[in-house]
Amino acid sequence: MNRILPVLTVLLAIIAVWYVAAYFLNLNWANQQIAREGIEPTFSALFQNTMAQERPVLPAPHQVAVGLWEGIAGQKITSKRSLVWHGWVTLSATLAGFAIGSLTGILLAAGIVHNRAMDQSVMPWAIASQTVPILAIAPMVIVVMASVGVTGLLPKAIISAWLSFFPVLVGTVKGLRTPDAMQLDLMRSWNASANQVFWRLRLPSAMPYLFASLKVAIAASLVGAIVGELPAGATAGLGARLLSGSYYGQTVQIWSALFAAAALAGILVLIVGWIERLTLKRMGLAR
């Protein structure tokens, strides 16, 4: 209760601000429309008009809610208008990219912890690679792959993988290095091989770090999948919904796609958090 009340208050305040903003942003168009129909421009007439425009500058929250509901529940899920279908297209690319990216990150981290030459060679470039706005090459990756004949899920997954691999790499390297000299010495005194040290000491102690970075990575890989759908005129996925909405001025469609993406991101992070709790509990690491 101590935490829910403030959050609810802030959320309500945001919705209230949104309604006020929707009224003022849509006022211009409402004035024109009402003048054309010859109705008395009273406040209530204007207000009703701003709340129910076909293509508002800023749709009111309930319009977005209706758009979201129709997109999710109002269509058959195989329909091209269904947000569930578009969400699934984006989700599959996200998950594929997340799997590739986090696996690469973990493998590289294991290599970096065990090999000093690799540490000194790869790590500075991995860090430098993050100052590069990688999303900028998204259109290129898609076009290049299309010219080789690879289309559909894989190009988007590669962009997702590229975005999600770095947090996992850094988090895992940090985690694999948490065992201190004392614990490593203890393992050595038990005559443990490098393999055993990795599986029984380093990997378990890296788990909390790994999961923290997996949460960041899955959100990043969703962003990657959505941006990957923007450039090459993709016809499916939440990113394509955003793009076609912006071409045709369908603001309600844009906002519904945006909220669907937000909900998807929230659900994915929650699922990873749930797996984290379960795993850490099984391993006796839960706090």
Binding site: P6, V10, I14, V57, I226, G239, L242, I254, A261, G266
Partner: peptide, 26 residues
């Protein structure tokens, strides 16, 4: 306000905010 804004801020920081680009361009 802090207790209210912090969870929301954390949540929004994880969202695909680039998606807001078409709206702001409009």
């Amino acid at each position: 306000l802090q207790r209210g804004l912090l969870p929301i801020g954390n949540f929004v920081a994880a969202l695909p905010i680039v998606g807001i680009a078409p709206i702001l361009v409009m």
